[in-house]
């Protein structure tokens, strides 16, 4: 049990470190890179939780595709010191509000009776196929079919919307 615990500490530590760095760094490209670091360490945590399929998708979709597009935009615009969207006071207020909401949410999840305290030690009861592509696919196309299809239609709408906005002639 020593090696998983060590790996968990490493991934969690890197994730938190990168997240803190992302918030405090000035340069937007460095922030984006630190976010990639967060995403990669979270995919490491997924592997520790026996969800290798999710881990691969996390890297492929978020770190590999979405963050590259983020970087693309940041580089093309070359923003060095961006102008803030909110005033300092309002931003602080929203920050505190969201922090409280997330904290309460996490606390509620951790304390709810379905999850045993110390989830790592309680893991051997998980079936072998848990988190495999086949298991996820089966659940996705049976139990969660409608939400899945609705999400894909939503994404299609977003794509068409982006094309329409980009093609519109201004002036």
């Amino acid at each position: 049990m020593l090696i998983p615990a060590f790996l968990f500490a490493m991934f969690a530590g890197v994730a938190i470190g990168c997240a803190v760095g992302m918030v405090f760094h000035r340069n937007p490209v460095h922030c984006a890179l630190l976010l990639v670091g967060v995403l990669l360490s979270i995919s490491g945590l997924f592997i520790l939780l026996n969800a290798s399929f999710l881990a691969a998708l996390q890297v492929l979709v978020y770190a590999g595709a979405i963050m590259v597009l983020f970087l693309f935009v940041l580089m093309l615009l070359n923003i060095r010191g961006e102008s803030p969207l909110l005033t300092r006071g309002a931003a602080k207020g929203f920050g505190i509000l969201f922090a409280i909401v997330v904290f309460v949410e996490l606390l509620w999840t951790v304390l709810s009776p379905q999850v045993e305290p110390g989830g790592m030690a309680a893991s051997p009861s998980v079936p072998r196929s848990f988190g495999s592509p086949a298991a996820i696919g089966r659940v996705l196309y049976t139990v969660w079919l409608y939400p899945f299809e609705i999400t894909s239609i939503l994404l299609l709408i977003a794509v068409i919307g982006a094309v329409v906005l980009a093609k519109r002639k201004f002036g």
Binding site: V36, A56, L57, V59, L60, G64, M75
Partner: peptide
């Protein structure tokens, strides 16, 4: 032998883009 080896390869090669983009930037 990863059970999602093919996805693993695609994921790592998609990370390879960073090397080139960041070098350029």
């Amino acid at each position: 032998d990863v059970n999602v080896a093919l996805l693993f390869v695609l994921a790592t090669t998609s990370m390879g883009v960073y090397g080139i983009v960041l070098g350029g930037w």
